[in-house]
Design a protein around this nucleic acid. Structure first.
Length: 512
RNA sequence: GGCGGUGUAGCUCAGCGGUAGAGCAGGGGAAUCAUAAUCCCUUGGUCGGUGGUUCAAAUCCGCCCACCGCUACCA
């Protein structure tokens, strides 16, 4: 009986083109999903698109399209990105699906039945010209001393009828839950922020959960004048995907979710609003919510106006999907912001992938092809150096696994690279090219140790670089059905024929 | 303003009470199996400032400086 593991990315809002941040979230989640699968879990990995709301309604109108047609097109772009980034999601949910509409309405009714919804008024500064509400703080004072929208449009203080969720009654329960479960929110700094927010003197307010100002949304049960505002519509997707409101179906075992992976911009929604909703609906809370950081581009904030928005598809085309995946998870502490620069990506590629790992595999395999008959060499008695290397190798699955469990991807990779470097030091010290002339038995034993090492490293790196590691494991003679972590204990039989070696990570040379 | 975080070698960062660490960059050497890749040695820091606690402080506490985040209806 495999242990279920359910993880999610956010659903991506379809009013813009995918950028590197979207790819980042998907890739990080994908590494986790692949890791858990190799580690013997039954994984359900969900991603998808968020397709309702006024902005989408407007974007569709601007494009001269019906909203559904518009979202069909943009959603397909996100699905395509997932495919191109080699994301192994088990499902792709769209909030315009009929099953999601049913799930949201069931969620609404449950909240209403439990007495947590009431009809009130949503007040705010509204600009008719912009068709948009603004926060008090967003308003600016114009030359005439009037308060206007940041766009310069006039605003008026209006009240719109709206249903509210009694979120205020869950503040203390949320605080208690977060304090009793130190791992519920990661990373730690973010957890502090959420607690600080919950403990602020004003406390938690009720939440406006419907709108009458647009139509592109899920109708509120029993009141067609309203559609649901983003909260219930978007967050409920995590339940829709596993069959909610039917919690007895084949996927129901995946709840509560093990991890919601989100960007830091939407942590609040997942760490406050969503848990409050679930409490109010008598549904178990997810085990963990982790917020990752953002990428700057060559030291500058990514923005459309600067024009430095990076399309992950272009990077993948130039450098390859696996080097891109590697870079994004290697370069920065997951949870902190990172900086993408072309130079640093190329440095990671050339130094760590080509020189350290790729070359270690290549020098070992080509030596075996030329001097050891192209088969898995005979193992021998272990020297102290051999035992040290083997100990480092065998510790990896645990130490790397522990890092992955904390979403410390760069630490996981650094842990592996310490051993990659140790492999290069080992081959230099043992010098099989010298042993070739003096001690063929020992030469084979050294080569066998190197292959055993490379097999473990490649196996553990599969989640990060699936295609490249598949190639490497092919060259190492590891059968496709012996690449999970349980198979790590079973060495490749001596004498196994190895395919002709071919470089897996070429150096990247800038075209002139 | 309030709350939280960060400030350690040229760069990116780890260490978080017990004689300053890694990678990259720089310098010297070795080796030649390999994608001219690798390995070894090495230069370099009064650990933001200041006061305190302690036998002992990057590491704990106070204050100051700089930068960043959060301060709700923008997924």
């Amino acid at each position: 009986m495999k242990q279920p593991y359910y993880l999610t990315t956010p659903i991506f809002y379809v009013n813009g083109a995918p950028h590197i941040g979207h790819a980042y979230t998907m890739i990080a989640a994908d590494v986790l999903a692949r890791w858990k699968r190799l580690d013997g879990h039954e994984v359900f990995f969900l991603t998808g698109t968020d397709e309702h709301g006024q902005k989408v309604e407007k974007a569709a109108a601007d494009a001269g399209k019906a909203p559904q047609q518009f979202t069909d097109e943009v959603s397909a772009i996100f699905a395509d990105i997932a495919h191109q980034m080699n994301i192994s999601n088990d499902a792709f949910i769209r909030t315009t699906e009929a099953r999601h509409k049913a799930a949201c309405q069931a969620m609404w009714r449950k909240l209403a039945d439990n007495g947590h919804i009431y009809l009130g008024g949503y007040e705010g500064w509204y600009s008719v010209r912009d068709e948009s509400f603004y926060d008090e703080g967003e308003l600016v004072t114009n030359a005439k001393g009037e308060k206007v929208a940041p766009t310069g449009a006039p605003v008026e203080y209006v009240t719109e009828p709206s249903y509210f969720f009694r979120m205020s009654s869950f503040g203390q329960k949320l605080i208690d839950h977060i304090e009793a479960n130190p791992d519920f929110i990661g990373p730690r700094e973010r957890r502090n922020e959420v607690l600080g927010f919950l403990k602020s003197p004003e406390g938690l307010k009720d939440l406006s959960i419907s709108r009458t100002s647009f139509r592109w949304g899920i109708p509120v049960p029993g009141d067609d004048a309203h559609v649901m505002y983003v909260w219930i519509d978007a967050l409920t997707n995590y339940l829709t995907a596993i069959g909610y409101p039917d919690m007895t179906g084949p996927l129901a075992k995946f709840w509560p979710a093990d991890l919601h992976l989100v960007g830091k911009d939407i942590l609040r929604f997942h760490a406050v609003i969503w848990p409050a909703m679930l409490m109010a609906a008598d549904i178990a809370l997810p085990k963990r919510v982790f917020a990752h950081g953002w990428w700057t581009i060559e030291g500058e904030k990514m923005s459309k106006s600067i024009g430095n928005v990076i399309d992950p598809r272009e990077l993948a085309e130039t450098f390859g999907v696996d080097p891109l995946r590697f870079f994004l998870l290697r370069e920065t502490t997951f949870g902190s912001d990172g900086d993408y620069s072309r130079a640093s990506l190329i440095r990671r590629m050339n130094v760590e992938l080509a020189n350290d790992l790729g070359n270690l595999a290549q020098r070992t395999l080509s030596f075996i092809a030329k001097n050891a008959g192209g088969v898995m060499p005979k193992r021998g008695e272990s020297t102290e150096a051999d035992l040290t290397l083997a100990a480092q190798r065998d510790a990896l699955v645990f130490s790397v696994g522990a890092a992955v469990d904390r979403q410390a991807f760069n630490e996981a990779l650094e842990t592996i690279w310490v051993v990659v470097r140790a492999g290069n030091a080992y081959i230099d010290q043992q010098a099989p090219w010298t042993l070739k002339k003096t001690d063929l038995v020992r030469m084979e034993a050294v080569l066998a140790n190197l292959l055993d090492l490379l097999r473990v490293i490649s196996t553990l790196l599969q989640p990060f670089m699936p295609d490249s590691m598949a190639k490497m494991l092919d060259q190492l003679g590891v059968p496709a059905d012996a690449r999970d972590f349980a198979s790590l204990a079973t060495p490749i039989p001596e004498g196994t024929a190895l395919p002709a070696p071919a470089g897996v990570f070429p150096r990247f040379v800038e075209a002139v």
